[in-house]
Nucleic acid binder design. Structure first.
Lengths: 144, 144
DNA sequence: TAATATACTACAAAATTACTAGGAATTCAA
DNA sequence: TTGAATTCCTAGTAATTTTGTAGTATATTA
């Protein structure tokens, strides 16, 4: 039941962008340096965020990325789902609408649905702004 | 954020044992056949449950496994934690007591703690007896 | 036009998951 | 007392997923 580095890095990446939101375009390189994460790997993660319009990119010199909205308008849940994929504990729950036919009438499916709902409720209640505010007080160890 | 087959199989295994709780020792072989799960793999999973005294084993002919308590005295959470390990979304939360030193003052740790609490709350509120009751009504597709 | 970026595709290493194999030890029943 | 049934134990291995690397094309600016 682990969150992968993709999701964790995405949170740090987005927090970094939020903190520097008034500094124009932010290059992957600068984020990678500050956060001590592989540049190329970050590139792949930010691509996922760009595809879903959570960030926008500008190519070329002085290019880089920036947020498309205010930090308070993002939730942690949204960021995690874009980078991790669904937070569902089983594959059958990955499509929003219809779980797999066999599972429709399955005992355990309802358990996993409850778990998913509980997880989503938590992560959807926390905004990126909250991370920014806390970060300024506390810091981020980088390991979780 | 997936539950592995270990945890899912363990749930089916324990439900199977609960349903046959008055039939004496239940062999791995019979469970494997009923549940259509590899015998050798089940063996490894049940070993984890036996080590923590969720089931007891009898060796030799006519041997097998049985529950050590009534089905209502097990929670899904307990079964999952024994087989999956902690349900924590990050390694730093795996030991109950003290998260890693660096993380103590970390922004994201509190998010993961909230997620863990939410997940545990759900799975700890469901008993094995509930699975048995529902199973009799609904069945189990085996894929989740 | 050189420097600085992102965009894209493919590959690869490392870690984890999900088994498989084989035999030793134990118990029961004939 | 022997053979069948069963758990116990250790290793190995295949498949999958995660976590990156590498290289090149494309775009932008000074």
């Amino acid at each position: 039941m682990k969150i992968s580095t993709k999701g964790r890095y995405a949170l740090r990446l987005m927090t970094d962008l939020a903190i520097h939101k008034d500094d124009g375009n932010i290059s992957i390189k600068s984020i990678a340096t500050r956060q001590n994460i592989s540049e190329k790997y970050l590139e792949q993660i930010i691509k996922l965020l760009a595809k879903e319009n959570l960030v926008e990119s500008t190519r070329g010199a002085q290019g880089g990325y920036k947020l498309t909205r205010e930090p308070i308008e993002y939730t942690v849940g949204e960021i995690l789902r874009v980078t991790e994929g669904s937070l569902a504990p089983v594959a059958c729950l990955e499509t929003d609408d219809n779980p797999c036919e066999n599972c429709m009438d399955c005992v355990t499916l309802e358990i996993w649905q409850c778990v998913l709902d509980a997880v989503n409720k938590v992560v959807d209640s926390i905004t990126l702004q909250y991370l920014v505010d806390k970060q300024k007080e506390k810091g981020n160890c980088g390991c979780c």
